[in-house]
Computed example of a mutant assay.
Amino acid sequence: MLRLVAYLSLLSTSTGIAEPVSMPELPDIAPIKLEAIGKFGPGASIENSGIVRSRSRDDLFWTINDSGDAPKVYPVLSDGRLWGSARYSDDPGVLIGGAVNVDWEDIAVDDLGNLIVCDVGNNRNDRRDLVLYYLPEPSPHAGRTTYQKKVFLKYPDQALYPSDQSDFNYDCEGVFCVRDKVYLVSKNRSDTLGKLYRLDTANPYQTNTLTYVDAFDFGGKTTAADASIDGRRLAVTTYDALWVFEIDGATDMYFRGKIYWMPFAATQVEAVCFDGRDTILLADEADAEIYKVEFDELTRVDQLEFVPID
C-alpha cells in the first residue's frame, strides 16, 4: 500500500501562511459499499443535510434538513428513528421560532450546551447573510424553541458578490465545533480544495470575519464535517470518500496531522458525525439512510511531519 508524504512546502512570504496540503497518493482500493443501519423517520427524511451527537445524552442526535423544510431541528436515535414530540405528536421536530431556513447545511454542538444551526449554503457565492443560530439544546420531547443569538459571518478572502467564476469557493456544507470555537470547511466549486476557517468572534451585532486556517486538496467537493468531542479527530466527507485527520490536540492545523481515508459508494452522503471517538455515522440525503463506519476501517495515507510555521 502506498503511504507517501503529502506536499507541505510553505509560502516564502512574511504572512507565514502555509500552502494547501496536496492529496497524498492513494492506494488502489475499491469503494466500500455502505450498508444502512437505519433510515430517518418522518420529517427528518425530507432533505437531510447535517447531523450531530448531543452533549447531554449519549443516545440522542440532532439533524436538520436543507432549504426545503421549515426551520426545525429533529431529535433522532443513531438508527434514524425519530423521538416523538410530547406536545406536537403529529408535527415532528422542534420548530425554532424566528429562524429562517435559507440554506441550512450543517449542525454543530459546543461545550456550553448549545446547538449551532448553520445557514451557510451559498451555491451562487452571492450571499451576504450567512448566519449561525445558537440555541440551548432543547428537550427531545419539545415542539418549539427559539434561538439565543444569531451570528452573521463572512469570508476574509471573498471580495466580490457573487465571486468570480474562477474563485467560486465560498459555499460550505461542513461545520464543526471544538470547545468554544466554530470551524467551517468550504465546498469549493472552482477547484478541489476545502479551506478551513475559524470563527474567532461571535458578535451578534456585526458581521464577523472568519479566520483562514489551512486548506487541503480533497480531490472533490466536501459535503459534511464533524470533530470528535476531544477535538483530536476531524471527519470530512466528499461525495465518494470519508477523510479523518488526527492531531495531537495542541493545534487546529488538522490537515497537517495524520490522514486516514476510505472511498465509499453511496447515493448522496451530506452529513457526518462522531458517535464516540471511534465510530462515525454518515447520512444520505437522497435515500434518508444512515451508515456506520468504524475508525479502524480507514486506511492511513500519509507519513506527515508537522512543519512549524515561523
Rank of each mutant, 00 (worst) to 15 (best):
L2V: 15
A6R: 01
L8Q: 15
S12E: 13
P20H: 15
V21S: 07
E25H: 12
E25F: 02
L26Q: 00
I29F: 13
K33I: 11
G38C: 09
E47V: 03
N48M: 12
N48P: 08
R53W: 01
S54C: 00
I64D: 03
S67V: 05
K72P: 09
Y74A: 11
V76Q: 07
L77I: 01
S78T: 03
R81Y: 11
L82M: 15
D91P: 13
A108H: 08
D111R: 01
V117M: 07
D129K: 09
P136R: 00
P138N: 00
R144A: 14
L153Q: 01
D157Q: 02
Q158A: 04
A159Q: 11
L160E: 10
P162S: 02
S163R: 02
D164N: 05
Q165L: 00
D167N: 13
D171H: 09
E173V: 06
G174P: 04
V175W: 06
V175N: 13
F176Y: 15
C177V: 03
C177Y: 04
V182M: 11
L184G: 11
V185S: 12
S186W: 06
K195I: 03
Y197E: 06
L199P: 12
T207I: 13
F218R: 05
D230A: 02
V236I: 15
D240C: 08
A241N: 04
I247P: 02
M253G: 13
M253A: 02
M253C: 14
F255H: 07
Y260W: 00
A266I: 06
F274T: 07
G276H: 01
I280T: 03
D284K: 09
K292Q: 15
V307K: 13
